[in-house]
Design a protein around this nucleic acid. Structure first.
Length: 495
RNA sequence: GGCGGCAUAGCCAAGUGGUAAGGCAGAGGUCUGCAAAACCUCCAUCCCCCAGUUCAAAUCUGGGUGCCGCCUCCA
């Protein structure tokens, strides 16, 4: 069995073959740092983080690079609004990016190149393209000569004729620089400085880089001419990634920029793509800090991860109150299973609570099922089936133990299953904190609870159900779950 | 208008020729004074529609319909 990846370039699933055995060079288009990240960004970076984790779990050494665009009109505009500088705005929202994505358990990339730190590489690349006839300068701007690259459009599956036919008059109207271009689809590599905006000296006069060129230059610098996987949001296929290909492959004698191109589907809100421009977005911090689901509960960061992972990464997905609530319920199930070992391991006589899985026939079978699913173009939704089944089985045993009944399953087999669950959930970036079990969710001490229960027991014996129900309501308020049994004392636990 | 993609139960969603995974929600039961929690059982004769290929199709082909994305900055 081997890993297959859906390649946007060929629109088919292909067997995964790396340039160098067991090594993966992976580049992900990062954000333009002019605002807080929203759920759409969260999906993208959770997906690529999980792909990276999975590749590592499969034994690949992954070199993962993700850029920040820190030169951009929107950042400048924001700086104006915030009475700040481009650099200050970029730094503010870069810091916010890390805060938000760390909460979602997205691991740091191996490096985070910045456009402003690669001005020399960008200029060298533009000069190279100019020398080779793929770029031309006009009044301090430099444009890429799209017609010189006969493969232009190979990623997005469109050709210049289609584009011209489709665009009609819109192309002309949009851009005042249009008249400078040889072809309406030529795009800017370098933009002449405008008064009051940050700029850098260059052979073409003061100016700043265009958007597309930074990725080409930084990939070349950080990872080399050809990489294994280039990924990003589906909305970047055209023109951004198409242009990256044009720039890099023309500069590098047509050597491919990336073997595989991967794109994640968009997050939708009320049927429409979540985006800044439409204004229908919900930021990660708003979702995690202020949002309440259908059960009036706050959203656990792991719920967001699970929500993202339940959909195939290429498909669009809808965010709604109902869908995030369902994800929250589902996460509770998985969490219960993952906490099982920490909660019951000792009672079951395990000699340690080490979550590292050992190879046993039982664990290997589950791991194989998971791997088979995920090897098919990272079908984590199907892999999640194994996670759910393990979690539900452990939760069931946990409940049997909690409710003081006989527990007959083999403790060592349970440990195998628990360790497998921890490992597979971990591959998906789903983690629990064992300390959660120690947290006093109730302000009441055990003694106080016992005392109230005794009082309640007396009331129940006297058939004073009004009093017993009042005490139970009080305990429920304190998140104490009471279980009544006939003939034996009531049991309780913190829920 | 051009290009690309998607349509599976109340909701999310897997399944890519061999007779519909999983999750959430829901129903019934066990338990309880009644609950709650948990457990057990049930929950798509059928995969947007119409034709076709095949012994066999949700899965392949053709034609519709609907929805979405990109074509401007966008994860």
């Amino acid at each position: 069995m081997s890993l297959t990846i859906y390649n946007t370039l060929t629109r088919t699933k292909e067997p995964f073959q790396t340039l160098t055995p067991n090594r993966v060079k992976m580049y992900c288009c990062g954000v333009t740092v002019y605002d807080y990240c929203h759920l759409g960004h969260a999906r993208s970076y959770i997906v690529w983080d999980t792909v990276r984790r999975y590749l590592q779990w499969r034994g690949y050494a992954v070199e993962y690079v993700q850029n920040f665009t820190d030169i951009d009109d929107k950042i400048l505009k924001r700086a104006d609004v915030e009475q700040s500088s481009m650099q200050a705005v970029a730094e503010k929202y870069t810091a916010a990016y890390f805060e938000d994505l760390h909460r979602l358990n997205v691991r740091d990339a191996d490096s985070y190149p910045l456009a402003t730190k690669h001005i020399q590489e960008i200029q060298d690349l533009i000069a190279d393209l100019e020398t080779k006839g793929f770029a031309y300068a006009v009044d301090g701007d430099v444009y890429f000569r799209v017609r010189r690259f006969d493969e232009y459009g190979k990623l997005s599956k469109r050709n210049l004729e289609d584009l011209r036919a489709g665009a009609g008059e819109r192309v002309e109207a949009a851009d005042p620089d249009q008249i400078k271009k040889e072809d309406p689809f030529d795009f800017a590599l370098w933009k002449a400085a405008k008064p009051g905006e940050p700029s850098w000296e260059s052979p073409w006069g003061n100016g700043r880089p265009g958007w597309h060129i930074e990725c080409s230059a930084m990939i070349q610098k950080q990872l080399g001419d050809t990489i294994d996987i280039h990924c990003g949001g589906g909305d970047l296929v055209f023109p951004h990634h198409e242009n990256e290909i044009a720039q890099s492959e023309c500069a590098h004698d047509r050597r491919p920029l990336s073997t595989y191109w991967m794109h994640n589907g968009m997050v939708k809100l009320s049927g429409e793509k979540m985006s800044k421009s439409l204004g229908n977005f919900i930021t990660i911090r708003k979702l995690l800090d202020d949002y309440r689901d259908g059960n009036h509960q706050p959203i656990d960061p792991m719920t967001v991860r699970l929500f993202v992972l339940t959909a195939q990464y290429r498909k669009p997905m809808d965010f709604s109150d109902a869908s995030i609530t369902a994800a929250g319920q589902s996460w509770q199930t998985i969490k219960d299973g993952m906490l099982f070992g920490y909660e019951f391991g000792e009672k079951l006589g395990w000699d340690n609570l080490d979550p590292i899985r050992a190879d046993t026939p039982a664990t290997i079978a589950e791991v194989d099922r998971f791997r088979t699913a995920a090897d098919d173009d990272f079908n984590f939704a199907e892999g999640l089936v194994v996670v759910f089944e393990l979690a539900k089985e452990l939760r069931k045993v946990g409940n049997i133990i909690t409710h003081d009944s006989e527990q007959t399953a083999d403790p060592m087999l349970l440990k195998d299953k628990w360790q497998t669950l921890i490992e597979l959930a971990g591959v998906l970036g789903l983690e629990v904190n064992p300390d959660e079990l120690k947290v006093q969710v109730s302000g009441l001490s055990d003694a106080e609870i016992e005392s109230l229960l005794t009082e309640r027991q007396i009331a129940r014996a006297n058939k004073d159900f009004a009093t017993s129900d009042r005490i139970r309501a009080q305990l429920t308020e304190e998140k104490i779950v009471v279980i009544d049994k006939a003939g034996v004392p009531s049991t309780w636990y913190r829920g």
